[in-house]
Design a protein around this nucleic acid. Structure first.
Length: 221
DNA sequence: GCCCAGGTGGGTA
DNA sequence: TACCCACATGGG
């Protein structure tokens, strides 16, 4: 891992896209649902599933717990892996009621390392899902590493994209102040940048806000 | 028709 | 630790 210019990358992305104020959800619990539904899934498909849940007024821990499994599967079907994800959602809310009186805020009121351990112990909640929940539902300074993060910073030559999750998360957290607003914007900007510029059909380098930092500028990127 | 998407868990060497 | 596979829908 390089000892990297993370601030210049952030500054350029912020200047280009402006503040994004993530996560696209109307409540902390909706963040949890989105974080589970988006596992290895395009966000456009997640939106369809969440729209179904909203229509059914099922975007609360109480409603998800009460819903018959097959009903829930049908609602979230557009997000793919619907049997797995229905189970994961209901395991999550079952845990929430068994241990926190159904109150997500109570789970997320614990110190960050403790809340993270608790989330990671849940079946269906891996490191990326846990960090997304901690940061975007809890406002806790836990940096989110996803496929976009690996792709972008791998291309910039700042990290090994195949490195383990925890080592990449540590790379960012050792080099950035533990500021939830910073982590929020940084990850959102990474996603926005990649959605626009890291696709298979690459746009022209001239349009890229990271052009000056990119080792592939004017060649393949 | 084929490839891929904001992962995770379970299994094997 | 490092691979492998299942899990499923919808858009390019």
């Amino acid at each position: 891992m390089s000892s990297a210019p993370l601030s210049p990358v952030f500054d350029r992305l912020l200047a280009h896209f402006g503040p994004l104020h993530w996560w696209p959800a109307e409540s902390p619990f909706e963040v949890v649902i989105g974080a589970i539904l988006t596992q290895n899934t395009a966000w456009t498909n997640v939106e369809k599933a969440i729209a179904n849940l909203r229509r059914e007024e099922a975007l609360t821990p109480e409603a998800l717990r009460a819903a018959p499994r097959e009903q829930l599967e049908a609602w979230i079907r557009p997000a793919g892996f619907f049997r797995q994800k229905a189970e994961r959602l209901q395991l999550f809310v079952d845990y929430l009621f068994d241990h926190h009186d159904g109150d997500l805020g109570r789970l997320l009121a614990a110190p960050l390392p403790e809340a993270r351990r608790e989330l990671l112990a849940l079946k269906g909640v891996g490191p990326e899902t846990a960090d997304s929940i901690l940061l975007y539902a809890g406002g806790l300074p836990s940096f989110v590493v996803d496929a976009y993060t690996r792709r972008l910073f791998g291309r910039l030559g700042l990290l090994d994209p195949t490195a383990p999750y925890e080592s990449i998360r540590t790379f960012f957290m050792e080099r950035l102040p533990a500021d939830p607003d910073l982590f929020n914007e940084y990850h959102a900007l990474i996603v926005e940048q990649c959605k626009q510029l890291c696709r298979k059909r690459r746009p022209r380098c001239a349009d890229c806000p990271l052009q000056e930092l990119c080792p592939f500028a004017n060649s393949q990127h």
